[in-house]
Design a protein around this nucleic acid. Structure first.
Lengths: 199, 199
DNA sequence: AAGCTAACTATAACAACGTTACAGAAGTTC
DNA sequence: GAACTTCTGTAACGTTGTTATAGTTAGCTT
């Protein structure tokens, strides 16, 4: 069999892309190296030469997921001039991104794959994705909306509420027939002003 | 080898117990049927006769985890007369329970094991565990602490904040050196009064 | 009370997984 | 043009969940 040089950076990107599609459509149990290899038109060795092992591929998927999340958040925030509206839009964008690929969301936050642990670089990417939220809160503070609490703390609170709400929705713990979007919005609205007052 | 009847209800309980210990100590990757069987002094078939398959065992662990969580919440709430203090105690108890066995928490909320999906019975147990929180909020409402928002909605909000915060802490997204307990408490304090005002 | 039937348990085999060793082909260098 | 290095696909290994098989025990029937 020929051995034409095919394990390039292009294939590396296509592997992560195809793995994400596989994960989205059939879940973590279907994400096997053999299936990924045949779907990508290569052999299982490609994962080993390009990512070391399956964990390396998962780390790349983890980082890609957070980069996509960060981009979505940034786009949502930039679409609104009013800082409070931007904050609400961030909540919606966060939920939408999670719901588009729940299994990827599980990989990013839960332990979707047994032995998986993100390395420091991956975690740094994750925390960078969360930055647009801090910026939006800072804009609110600059506009005099709230005061007395540092932006990082308010942003962390908002992240907790959004993540908690989305997680419960994905796990099926939200009351039936009650759209999660309304919850997220209500909670963001509800918690924000007081946080500022609480200090 | 003798086939003395040993797959009794007692063994069923011991299997879940041992599986929980294995999950807590070494994570989901170490929870294999062979290891569980030898650790429990039986064969892998015990799981199949008693629980159908591995999924059945996981469902039992899921239900047991939520029952334990519900008991811990109830105990925490009952330990305080003041309804607001009971609410704070609930937040701490929730976090403590999650941190004692993070992998079990992942199984309960994330997708710690690839193909796992809880059945309706298991989900009912989960929602029952959440009832002490609703009760505590209702006591606060009865005491005139808040008004204008149904207890279920406030409780759901508190659950979201607590779960979100604990999840972020477990995933390593909380600022270093900042104990999660303080966060949970601050957030519960911060969000509660306003929720009532927001309606 | 003895024998038959049905249920239950352990061993062994099977397909599939992640991973590693092996071997052969393409590209590089003198 | 030949030797060498690098890289890719195939095959094998150990382990997983699961299933088939075979042997043993308990309980009912007569």
């Amino acid at each position: 069999m020929p051995a034409v040089k095919s394990h390039t950076a292009d294939l590396a990107a296509r592997l992560v892309d195809e793995a994400g599609r596989l994960l989205a459509r059939e879940g973590a149990a279907a994400l096997t190296l053999r299936r990924l290899a045949t779907a990508s038109g290569t052999s299982t060795m490609a994962v080993y030469t390009l990512y070391g092992d399956k964990q390396g591929l998962l780390r790349a998927m983890y980082a890609a997921g957070f980069e996509r999340l960060g981009a979505a958040l940034r786009a949502a925030a930039d679409a609104h001039d009013d800082p409070l509206e931007a904050l609400i839009a961030l909540g919606h964008a966060y939920r939408d991104t999670a719901l588009v690929n729940p299994h990827l969301y599980d990989l990013m936050f839960g332990a979707a794959v047994p032995g998986f642990v993100p390395d420091e670089h991956a975690k740094a990417v994750a925390d960078a994705a969360y930055q647009p939220l801090v910026d939006a809160v800072a804009r609110c503070l600059a506009a005099g909306q709230f005061s007395g609490t540092p932006a990082e703390r308010i942003a962390l609170y908002l992240w907790s509420v959004s993540h908690g709400m989305v997680s419960l929705e994905l796990a099926g713990h939200l009351p039936a027939g009650d759209p999660g979007a309304a919850y997220v919005e209500a909670m963001v609205y509800a918690g924000l002003p007081f946080i500022a007052r609480a200090g």
